[in-house]
């Protein structure tokens, strides 16, 4: 049989698809980071913890309130987004005029505190969360068995990513946002409430992370470290795509998921490092990232 680099093509299709599915998580998470960085100029290290909180809120909603997965998909982003808004109002706002580094340190510290609190309460080995019955099972595509849930993940994330892109790049609200990013003082002079815009944007970015967390709950272990493990990779994705670029974050997210997936086939030992190798190469050649604007 015809083989490509020692792997039958059917197997390769399966791996490509899996790579794209993992890429959807990178895409939603890096999108949230890019949106926040674009407007607030804050490198939101709490993002991983907020993703984890999304998964935990889904679990709590199910076990304490009896709300199913579909309700959690809406409730969790709202709850975690509200927590994000509180963080922005109470903490981030106070250091907005300081250097980037302060925001980074504050959000990193917050992430450690949040993870620690959840670890104290729920332990580190995780909580069970089942796939919703409507999406259990899967389709035999000939070259692979595709679980329905994974197909849903890829569709949901594409819709959310493109919706966000449309909102920011093509709507009036988006134009305010972009204007406030460019020149907040001037935008405020035109009668637009920039502080409110900033707060809502942060809340929205955080809600995106929580949404990804709910999507992840049925397939990954729901544990307090789930975000910490992922966030470093997502930062690499954002750096490769270019800080603050919306489309860059989406495209790079999916593309790097793909690259990582293929590495798992050809050189599994390197799968955890390949993204960082690419990051180094991109930084050497295009320091602003693949889609970034040169500062």
């Amino acid at each position: 049989m015809f083989e490509l680099l020692g792997v039958p093509p059917q197997a390769l299709f399966g791996q490509v698809l899996l790579g794209l599915i993992n890429g959807s998580f990178y895409a939603i998470l890096s999108l949230g980071l890019a949106v926040i960085f674009g407007l607030l100029n804050i490198i939101n290290f709490t993002h991983g913890a907020q993703y984890m909180m999304g998964a935990f809120v889904a679990w709590m909603a199910l076990n304490y309130l009896g709300l199913n997965y579909w309700a959690a998909l809406i409730v969790a982003p709202i709850v975690v987004g509200a927590v994000g808004i509180a963080i922005e109002r109470l903490l981030l706002r106070r250091i907005a005029h300081l250097d980037h580094l302060y925001g980074l340190l504050l959000t990193f510290g917050l992430a450690l505190i949040i993870q620690g609190l959840f670890r104290n309460q729920y332990g580190s080995s995780g909580l069970p969360y089942a796939i919703p019955p409507q999406l259990s099972g899967g389709q035999n595509l000939g070259f692979m068995f595709l679980p329905n849930y994974r197909a849903w993940v890829i569709v949901a994330s594409l819709v959310v990513c493109l919706g966000t892109w449309f909102l920011i790049e093509k709507t009036k609200l988006g134009s305010y946002l972009r204007a406030a990013t460019e020149n907040p003082t001037l935008t405020q002079a035109f009668g637009i409430n920039v502080p409110l815009l900033v707060t809502l944007t942060y809340g929205f970015g955080v809600a995106l992370a929580a949404f990804a967390g709910v999507l992840a709950a049925p397939i990954y272990s729901v544990n307090p470290n789930m975000g910490g493990d992922l966030i470093i990779v997502v930062f690499a994705v954002v750096v490769i795509g270019g800080m603050g670029s919306i489309m860059g974050a989406i495209v790079t997210g999916f593309a790097l998921g793909l690259v990582e997936g293929l590495t798992k086939v050809f050189y599994p030992e390197g799968a955890a490092t390949v993204i960082f190798v690419i990051m180094v190469l991109v930084l050497l050649v295009k320091p602003a990232g693949l889609f970034g604007r040169q500062a």
Partner: peptide, 11 residues
């Protein structure tokens, strides 16, 4: 050989 610790083992 899978990278340690890992999240996605589907591949």
């Amino acid at each position: 050989k899978t990278p340690f610790p890992g999240t996605d083992f589907s591949s």
